[in-house]
Simulated assay, not measured.
Amino acid sequence: MPHSPLPLAQMDLALADTRPKRVTLSPGAMLLRGFALPEASELISALHDIAKNAPFRTMMTPGGGKMSVGMTNCGALGWVTDRRGYRYTPTDPLNNQAWPPLPPAWQKLATRSAEAAGFKGFHPNACLINRYEPGTRMALHQDKDEGDFSQPIVSVSLGLPISFLWGGLKRSTSPHAILLEHGDVLVWGGKARLHYHGVKPLADGLHPVTGQVRFNLTFRFVAPTD
């Protein structure tokens, strides 16, 4: 299916951007600038449909802290956190219903993105959706609840720009900041799969598509458990 054309304003910005489209952050980690722009409108439309059935919520950490970022999920499994710990569940704890299915177009984008970054055959079964409002952030952490580190993580940015923090394999490694903008896709796997990462607090702004919000779609493959 052909991609929907970009609005003229976005086309002008894309043509004026002379930065490299692919940037290696470290071995196994690549930024694909603007890779999801052609599908951005459809991604956001589907995102709102998902949120109608599985609303964004503020989750609690095992230690009792409250996360500032709004979260929901789609796919066969969804990531949750509460006093019982971090884990993936087949049902939404708010309604005990299955999470909304992963849209086929999202699946294809994740697979294409991973392949563009050098990881063929990626077929996610979970997508964690984060909603950032001004002042919200994500502390440095590893994505290590999936049980299969041979598969990459694919992260799609929509809406307001944010400073992404890319660290190392130890929390003590000082991270460096990378600007993530609307339509950017970040992929990490292989040697980079367990690198620490996070984002700085979202700055105030107004995006023409998402308003004062940034959304992040994070695709993962979660290994089945007995």
Rank of each mutant, 00 (worst) to 15 (best):
Leu158Trp: 00
Arg33Gly: 06
Leu206Asn: 15
Thr24Cys: 13
Pro152Arg: 01
Ser4Thr: 12
Met30Val: 10
Ala126Gln: 07
Pro62Gly: 00
His48Gln: 15
Ala16Gln: 10
Leu160Lys: 07
Ile178Ala: 08
Arg84His: 14
Ala76Lys: 11
Gly34Gln: 00
Phe35Lys: 00
Asp49Ser: 14
Ala223Arg: 05
Arg83Ile: 12
Asn95Cys: 15
Phe215Arg: 07
Tyr88Ser: 07
Gly78Ala: 05
Pro93Lys: 05
Val199Ala: 08
Gly168Ala: 06
Ser155Gly: 06
Lys120Gln: 06
Lys144Pro: 12
Ala203Pro: 14
Val222Gln: 04
Tyr86Ser: 13
Leu13Gln: 09
Pro224Gly: 00
Phe56Tyr: 11
Asn130Gln: 09
Gly34His: 01
Arg84Trp: 10
Met71Ala: 10
Met1His: 14
Ala105Lys: 00
Lys191Arg: 09
Ala36Lys: 04
Leu160Arg: 02
Leu13Ser: 08
Asn95Ser: 15
Thr61Cys: 10
Ala16Asp: 10
Thr225Asp: 09
Leu128Val: 15
Thr210Trp: 02
Leu217Tyr: 05
Gln151Met: 10
Pro27Leu: 05
Pro124Val: 03
Met67Asn: 05
Ala51Met: 09
Asn125Asp: 05
Ser68His: 13
Gly118Glu: 02
Ala110Asn: 03
Gly121Gln: 04
His197Val: 10
Phe215Pro: 03
Val23Arg: 08
Thr91Tyr: 14
Gly211Tyr: 10
Gly198Leu: 04
Pro103Thr: 03
Ile162Phe: 08
Gly85Ala: 07
His182Val: 04
Phe221Ala: 00
Val156Ile: 13
Ala110Cys: 05
Pro104Cys: 02
Phe122Met: 02
Val222Ile: 06
Asp184Met: 03
Arg19Lys: 09
Gly65Glu: 15
Lys170His: 11
Leu165Tyr: 14
Pro38Gly: 05
Met59Lys: 10
Ala76Gly: 13
His48Asn: 15
